[in-house]
Design a protein around this nucleic acid. Structure first.
Lengths: 145, 145
DNA sequence: GTATATTCAGACTAAATAATCTGATTTACA
DNA sequence: TGTAAATCAGATTATTTAGTCTGAATATAC
């Protein structure tokens, strides 16, 4: 089971990160992404389309076409991506799934675990793709096996 | 989408909590649980069976039969329940789903988010069902609507 | 302008999870 | 000892998520 996000969402995060790392003149094709990230071709296609529709990516058709970030990597936070794919329900709903539990009538762990939800949210908002890309370039994340 | 745990797991947590709250001489039937917790009857049946097989609940068949905690509520942590139903993969796997990411070769956010995973784990281990039940009995969690 | 490489769109299939159904087994109690 | 109330077991169906397939639309380059 995925930890926190849907598979789609995980793929989206990976794809956007890759685009940030490879940002340049050239657009990047679904094919390149699918090869490098080992994500099923057509499935990734859908996800990239979604991200494009949501305004996070820019696309161009035809030969030499492909995808690129629609804005500077600094402006794209992890939250933007998660929101675009999975939505933000997780920031509100009860961790234990109690149907009666809500902001107004919290269950006994709601507030305690509310901190957890806050924490996740904050991490997502604070981390932008540029930072993430920078981190990935650090030697300790290169070709360790 | 559920926040962190599968629906089954959420139901399990709710059911065990209910059993702790109602702990007494009488066994509690699936029917009572299904009515109070609004969980589909047969689905809940399966879950209770699972929890029984895993040793967290005790069951008795026949009239006057039903379920009860197999041990004192103090000894059952949220982690026990989550582990029994969903397993503990989430304590290890990459939050962003990077396939290459592991303990040995963490991705750039692995350590940062590792804290998050740790946090979840700790909360689960620290909170036992007795505490949870005690909290639920506090006036601020009673009959607010 | 034609061939080719791409995204785009929508229908389709597969797998995982959630939920239901049927009937067997056990056991209390009248 | 028979009946009813419960768990137990396994097959089945429904829903959601993941993944695939086909072809149309678009744009580049020769």
């Amino acid at each position: 089971m995925s930890v926190l996000f849907s598979r789609q969402c995980e793929y989206a995060l990976q794809a956007v990160l890759y685009l940030a790392l490879k940002a340049g003149k050239e657009k990047i094709t679904t094919q390149e992404l699918t090869k490098r990230l080992k994500i099923p071709y057509h499935f990734l296609g859908k996800i990239l389309q979604d991200l494009t529709r949501k305004g996070l990516l820019a696309s161009e058709k035809g030969p030499r076409g492909g995808f690129s970030l629609a804005m500077p990597a600094e402006e794209i936070t992890l939250f933007h991506i998660v929101d675009a794919i999975d939505g933000t329900e997780f920031t509100r709903s009860c961790v234990l799934g109690f149907p009666e539990c809500s902001e107004k009538k919290p269950c006994s762990v709601h507030s305690t675990w509310g901190g957890l939800r806050e924490d996740i949210y904050t991490r997502l908002v604070k981390k932008n793709i540029a930072q993430l890309a920078r981190d990935m370039k650090k030697p300790e994340y290169q070709s360790k096996r």
